[in-house]
Design a protein around this nucleic acid. Structure first.
Length: 475
RNA sequence: CGGGAAGUAGCACAGCUUGGUAGUGCACUAGUUUUGGGAACUAGGGGUCGCAGGUUCGAAUCCUGUCUUCCCGACCA
């Protein structure tokens, strides 16, 4: 039975999205526009993301720090490009107590400036490098239009900020972190992505270049899901972050930054979920298995549920027993809307035949197995299968929404029927990018560096093509 | 920030045109009976009608402002 609180995905995708967010109790609106309350169900997903990414960062040698939320105006404005890029979105604090401040304070939109200001006094020699710092925090960007998780004025993220003694090392770090993001999406979130470099027009303000990880949503709209920036010495020069190199010469550091945000929760929803609510890949699901006893005060049922829970927990599977006095149907529906990957139903009817029923959330398929089966192996195999199937279905969907364009008419035709990733050649001229944007706001997602040469000429102007670019409409 | 729509109990809505003591369904609480796809009955609790002004003897209802949400653009993770 369809969940009546959720608008059909194919009928109205935007409404479906917010319905799923609300029905699965991931977040709620607050009294300030664009600032959301991330509720336990949503925060648990974020915590799991943090846990997995944080472990990976640390394995690669990064350490966590906490920077202030406030940035003095002068400090923020030292690097011109960054300021220009962010100026319209910066929120300012102008009062302290009842007095006007002499210098305004910005609520951080990103923390490059704070890290630079800190680093400049904490390194003096090449022996102090690299510094591989990361922080988990919230930032504020005064967006005009807001949507839960996808675009909020306050959002939570991690921002890595590293400085290095050589260009090569910094560039390797930029690549390496992009690989982490790609791995995270493919292996954990079951979301296929394409990675590449942003065009000059689309790169991060102040970066020499920006690498991006781009995912495609169910409706064909692209979502930028992780970026990694190489800054060269730009910020170091603006903020005077110098060190003495091996030749006993002063040199500016080479810098990177990289980040992923709570927006990934929005991506998870828009790639995997359906009209029954949230669908989570097992590896990111805070609760992987729910055990539902059917019938009251049945000792055999209860003890089997407890046994399963004990064994699964011991084996590292996140599971719980739904012992509320709701009806079984209610519990099924609730587990479904919350996206619990596997549901085990234990009831007298099945037990009479030494059976239990196991339902997968992704396909809503009901399976039957022996009650005395090795539950740990059975569940683990099933979780792996679900994870793999979800990824494969996402790839299929992505491929179905991947197109090739050889001229502007192609592009218009595609965008007017069904947006997606559009592969097309580009001359490198910003004018062509601007022209293409006139078609439904279609932008370059990324330049595929080792892409095939699908044409000799630019999709827009017909002049000689330089880059294979993926285009699309974005969130 | 432009164009449109909307805000009444946790949720979904009626009431507003034509001002006169706040309603319905779901959810919630208690009890009883129930339990294999969102249980039933009985009895309850909960809202200064987004907020602030104004008009009026009297405002959920009329007027002004403002905040918030949603949709469509422009801007952006």
């Amino acid at each position: 039975m369809k969940n009546e609180a959720i608008t059909s995905r194919d009928e109205d995708f935007a409404k479906w999205y917010t319905d799923v967010v609300r029905a699965a109790k991931l977040c709620d609106y607050s009294s300030v526009k664009g600032c959301m309350v991330i509720e336990p169900n949503g925060y648990a997903i974020w915590e799991k993301m943090q846990e997995i990414l944080d472990k990976k960062f640390k394995e690669l040698g990064h350490v966590n720090v906490a920077m202030p939320v406030l940035i003095p105006e002068n400090l923020l404005k030292k690097e011109g490009e960054l300021v220009n890029g962010f100026a319209p979105e910066v929120a300012w604090i102008t009062q302290g107590g009842s007095k006007d401040l002499e210098e305004r304070l910005a609520f951080r939109p990103t923390s490059e400036t704070l890290f630079c200001d800190y680093y400049k006094d904490h390194i003096s020699s090449y022996r102090d490098l690299p510094k591989l710092y990361n922080q988990w925090c919230n930032v504020i960007r005064w967006e005009k239009e807001t949507r839960p998780f996808l675009r909020s004025r306050e959002f939570w993220w991690q921002e890595g900020h590293t400085i290095h003694a050589t260009e090569q090392e910094a560039k390797e770090e930029t690549d390496r972190m992009m690989e982490v993001y790609k791995w995270f999406h493919h292996e954990i979130l079951a979301i296929p992505t394409v990675t590449g470099v942003k065009t000059e027009k689309e790169k991060f303000a102040g970066a020499e270049y920006t690498l991006t990880n781009e995912a495609l949503m169910y409706n064909g709209v692209a979502l930028q899901s992780g970026t990694s920036h190489y800054f060269g010495q730009k910020f170091a020069e603006a903020y005077d972050v110098k060190f003495l190199n091996k030749d006993n010469k002063q040199e500016y550091v080479y810098q990177t930054s990289w980040g992923t945000t709570t927006r990934m929760i929005g991506g998870l929803i828009m790639v995997h979920s359906d009209d029954f609510g949230l669908v989570l890949p097992p590896r990111i699901a805070p609760k992987q298995v729910v055990i539902i006893p059917i019938g009251k005060d049945n000792e055999e049922v209860d003890s089997l549920c407890n046994k399963y829970k004990e064994q699964l927990t011991k084996a590292g599977v996140d599971c719980y027993i739904d012992n509320t006095d709701k009806s079984p149907g209610f519990k099924f529906a609730e587990a479904e809307v919350n996206g619990i990957p596997v549901r085990i139903e234990v009831g007298a009817r099945d037990l009479a035949e030494n059976k239990i029923t196991v339902a997968r959330r992704d396909t809503r398929e009901k399976l039957t197995t022996e009650a005395d089966t090795d539950i740990v192996t059975y569940v683990k195999v099933l979780l792996d299968t679900i994870q793999r199937d979800m990824y494969e279905r996402a790839v299929e969907r992505r491929d179905k929404l991947t197109f090739e364009a050889h001229n502007l008419e192609d592009m218009e035709k595609i965008l007017n029927t069904q947006p997606g990733f559009i592969h097309a050649m580009w001359c490198g001229d910003e004018a062509c990018e601007t022209r293409i944007k006139e078609i439904k706001g279609c932008k370059s997602r990324c330049i595929v560096e080792d892409g095939e040469k699908i044409d000799d000429k630019c999709v827009c102007c017909g002049k000689e093509a330089k880059h294979h670019v993926i285009w699309g409409i974005q969130y």
